[in-house]
């Protein structure tokens, strides 16, 4: 097995051998099912008045707003916990190439969150089916496609968090920056656009991770690339900083 493969296997072993990984997964699942069911109830009562059809995945999108922070924290901790526990010393002794280490971490966190995110979204959809059943149009292929897009979105958020965690090294700062990028930045830019009547800032706001992710999940594939760009930029910046700075 090549060096990157070995590093990735080691990273997976590290993730699966701490209990918090499984708590994150369980927490995300519980949150998703709760939010999706509540949202489905709401939607069902609304539809009972309006009589319009709905996709069963829509209630899951509400849950994503919540579970993305859980998966983001998970991705962040894969890096910041190394610095908090100083185990980064051992990790870098095993894999001295910073680029290889970050690629391995990104791949493992991305794949784990893609799988877990897909499962969580699928179960969230399943949980909201009973309420929406009579209003829904169930095209299995379409539903599966949307679940995969949600899984990809969550994986990209987690990878973004890995990159930010590498840049900042500390959990408190990283989670603040992640929160700011996803939730606050678009509002801030739009507010600024109104104040300064600078129309282009509204356009810029559309390309920040939060809104880009929403449009990606709504079916606009190009915005998946925008979000991917954010994730790649964060990880690349992390690599650059890691190579520059002493461990």
């Amino acid at each position: 097995m090549n060096a990157l493969g070995r590093a990735a296997r080691a990273e997976w072993q590290k993730l699966r051998s701490i209990r918090s990984t499984w708590w994150f997964g369980g927490g995300a699942l519980l949150t998703m099912v709760l939010v999706a069911v509540m949202e489905a109830e709401d939607t069902a009562s609304f539809l009972a008045r309006e009589g319009r059809p709905v996709e069963p995945v829509s209630s899951v999108l509400e849950g994503v707003e919540w579970v993305q922070l859980i998966f983001g924290s998970f991705g962040m901790l894969a890096m910041t916990s190394e610095y908090a526990t100083r185990s980064i010393v051992v990790t870098l002794a095993c894999t001295p190439s910073r680029v290889r280490l970050l690629l391995a971490k990104t791949a493992v966190v991305g794949a784990a969150v893609f799988a877990a995110g897909g499962l969580v979204a699928a179960l969230g959809t399943a949980a909201s089916v009973p309420q929406l059943h009579s209003y829904g149009e169930f095209d299995a292929v379409q539903v599966a496609g949307r679940i995969l897009v949600i899984a990809a979105y969550l994986a990209l958020i987690a990878v973004l968090a890995v990159g930010l965690g590498t840049l900042i090294r500390r959990s408190a700062g990283t989670i603040t920056l992640l929160f700011a990028l996803v939730y606050i930045l678009p509002f801030g830019l739009e507010g600024l656009a109104r104040t300064l009547s600078a129309e282009f800032l509204t356009t810029v706001a559309r390309y920040t991770p939060g809104p880009a992710g929403e449009r990606f999940m709504a079916g606009e594939w190009a915005f998946g690339l925008v979000l991917g760009g954010w994730a790649v930029t964060a990880v690349s910046a992390g690599m650059w900083v890691m190579r520059k700075r002493d461990a």
Binding site: A10, Q13, K14, S17, I18, S81, T85, S87, V89, V90
Partner: peptide, 15 residues
């Protein structure tokens, strides 16, 4: 410099 939540064996296995 070992993650406190990981067992000694799991730590060595990752290495």
């Amino acid at each position: 410099a070992v993650h406190p939540a990981r067992s000694g064996r799991d730590h060595l296995r990752a290495v």
